[in-house]
Simulated scan of single mutants.
Amino acid sequence: MDVAMPVIDDMPMYELGIAYEVFGTQWLDPWYSLKLCGSGPTRIESGFTLTPADGLDCLATAEMVLIPAVPHAWLRTRAIPPDLIAAVRAAASAGARMVSLCSGAFVLAAAGILDGMRATTHWQQASTLARWHPLVEVDPTVLYVDNGDVLTSAGRSAGLDLCLHIVRRDFGAHVANQVARRMVVPAHRPGGQSQYVDNSVPAEDSDSMGAVLQWACAHLAEPLTVEILAHQAKMSTRTFVRRFREATGTTPRQWLLSQRLNHAKGLLESTNLPIGLVSEHSGLGSAANFRQHFGAAIGTTPTDYRRAFHQGRFATSSAAGNRVPV
């Protein structure tokens, strides 16, 4: 898939790095091809200078356009260049998937692409986005929002979460896991997870919760309850539920369902197990219950998901061991 990213004077380096690591390493992960687009030599916030090979008009020919975080000065002056807004509008009109990282949402909003949509950005800038663009439903609490062809993320690491979510959506959990494993990061955090957690949680509580999460992931096939998890954490149920939300931004039940569905997707991609056994190994109960939860969360049936993402759709490159869509 062809991906284009506009580069802008004084833009932060971090989001550019995210885009390159996920979408720009064709010799390692041949799923995407990334182009940097701009108007000549561009000085990045960190002091680097880039010379894009293509102009902003290349956005209109890309299948996906990735808008990085904008310079901090733009958020003080509201001075988004008209040529960038025009190029982004042209790309959206041509049918490109539009994705923003962090404050890149301000560019999509200025182009009118987010009007009438739910969107997010860094929580520190969310009130400004909502004030400047009242037609946008700004959610300052989540990691990312997926509206199909328009996706927005919160700040910093949430941009990486969104990029891995896109890989998962395009090529399935197995490929997303490969990319995440190479980058040594978690393969998936749900978009609805909170942008930040309570800083007052003591370190030892977070460490204890991390051990419980690892234990739960190793026992997904078992009938786990909040009481069982609380016992494993050596806490009362009430304390465990509170600490769990502080540490993860979600409830134990929601977190378990997400982990079980992720595990099920991996089994659908990598095995030929019958649907009933996939459900059993994932702790999702009957096949009917599995189909109901899977359809509600993923938007398709387990059978159709397997048909789309089973490893049989991929060939292996002998040069680097990469799996290439066929």
Rank of each mutant, 00 (worst) to 15 (best):
A297W: 07
T303F: 02
H231T: 10
V212A: 01
A297T: 13
S258E: 14
A218E: 14
L268F: 12
S206A: 12
G312A: 12
L267P: 05
W255C: 02
Q232N: 05
T300P: 10
R242W: 09
Q254W: 08
F240M: 03
Y305I: 00
T271I: 03
F290S: 02
P274R: 09
F240P: 05
Y305W: 03
R291V: 05
D205Y: 05
T251V: 05
G210E: 13
T303Q: 15
G285E: 00
A296T: 07
A297N: 12
S200L: 11
E204L: 07
R291Y: 05
V201G: 08
E204P: 13
T301E: 09
E269Y: 01
K234A: 06
C217Q: 15
I275D: 03
L277G: 01
Q311F: 03
H293M: 04
N272G: 06
F240N: 06
M209K: 04
D198K: 10
A296I: 07
I298W: 05
Q311L: 10
T237W: 09
V212H: 02
Q214L: 06
R245N: 13
G210P: 13
L284E: 00
S200K: 13
A308G: 12
V197Q: 14
I298D: 08
E280L: 00
A216M: 10
L256R: 02
G210W: 12
G283R: 04
T271D: 04
T239K: 08
S258M: 07
T251S: 14
T271N: 07
Q292L: 06
F240V: 02
A230R: 04
A296Q: 14
S270P: 10
P274W: 06
D304A: 14
L261D: 01
Q254D: 15
L229R: 03
L213S: 04
S206G: 13
L229Q: 02
S286E: 10
D198V: 08
R238C: 01
T300C: 05
V197E: 14
Q214Y: 02
G312Q: 15
L229M: 09
Q259Y: 00
V241S: 11
M235G: 09
S200I: 11
F244Y: 15
S286T: 14
E246A: 07
D207H: 03
H281M: 04
A296M: 08
F244H: 10
S258L: 04
R245S: 11
F309R: 02
S236Y: 06
F309W: 08
I298E: 14
S208Q: 14
Y305G: 01
G249L: 05
S208I: 11
L229A: 01
T225D: 04
L229W: 04
S208R: 15
Q232E: 11
R245Y: 10
L277W: 01
T250K: 13
Y196P: 08
S282E: 00
F294G: 12
Y196S: 12
L220F: 01
V201Y: 12
A216K: 06
D198R: 11
L224H: 00
R242L: 07
L213N: 05
C217A: 14
L224Q: 00
A296V: 07
T303H: 07
N262M: 06
R291A: 07
R253G: 15
E269F: 00
P302N: 05
D205K: 09
S258V: 05
D205P: 03
R260W: 00
M235T: 15
I298Y: 04
G295L: 08
T303S: 12
